[in-house]
Amino acid sequence: MSAADTVSLTTMVVLIMLTLAMLIAVIRVVIGPTLADRVLALDLLTVLAMGFVGAIAIRTGLTLYLDIAISLALLGFLATVAFARYMLSRLRDEESLP
């Protein structure tokens, strides 16, 4: 077995595992009992998508995919901050109600 075959097999296994993890995270987004659970699951989906793009970058040898992963990381960070601010404002509104 050559090195290229080993990399191909390994990346295929990684892509399958990441796909299963994404499916489980989507289930958590759908049935999450609280908003915090859903936000955390969406953040997990972002991290898993970055891993997926990274595995594809290794599999194809194109470094362009790494730029996509970096921009996805920035987008995920900004989305998490926005959700946190929304939850904080919602908490403040609930505290001000009589």
Rank of each mutant, 00 (worst) to 15 (best):
V39W: 04
R38E: 03
V30T: 13
L62A: 14
E95R: 05
I16C: 01
T60L: 03
A57R: 07
A69H: 01
T46N: 08
L74E: 10
M50Q: 02
T11K: 12
T10A: 14
R38F: 08
V14I: 05
L48Q: 04
M1K: 03
M17L: 14
L74A: 12
V7S: 04
A36G: 13
R59Q: 04
S8E: 15
G51V: 06
M50H: 03
P98V: 06
G32Y: 08
L75Y: 07
V7Y: 00
R28C: 01
A4D: 03
T6R: 13
T11S: 02
I68M: 10
T60I: 02
A73I: 10
V47S: 11
L62D: 14
L15G: 08
G51Y: 02
R90W: 12
R90S: 09
G51L: 11
L75W: 05
L44T: 02
Y86T: 00
L15P: 01
R38M: 06
A41F: 05
V14N: 09
D43S: 12
I58T: 11
V53I: 04
A73R: 05
S8A: 15
L72G: 05
L20F: 01
L18K: 09
A3N: 15
L23S: 02
T6Y: 13
V47P: 01
D37L: 06
D43M: 02
L74T: 11
T60V: 04
A21K: 04
M12R: 15
L45C: 01
G32M: 02
M17N: 11
V13E: 03
S2Y: 04
I56Y: 04
G54H: 13
A3S: 15
A41H: 13
L66V: 14
V81N: 08
R59V: 10
L9N: 13
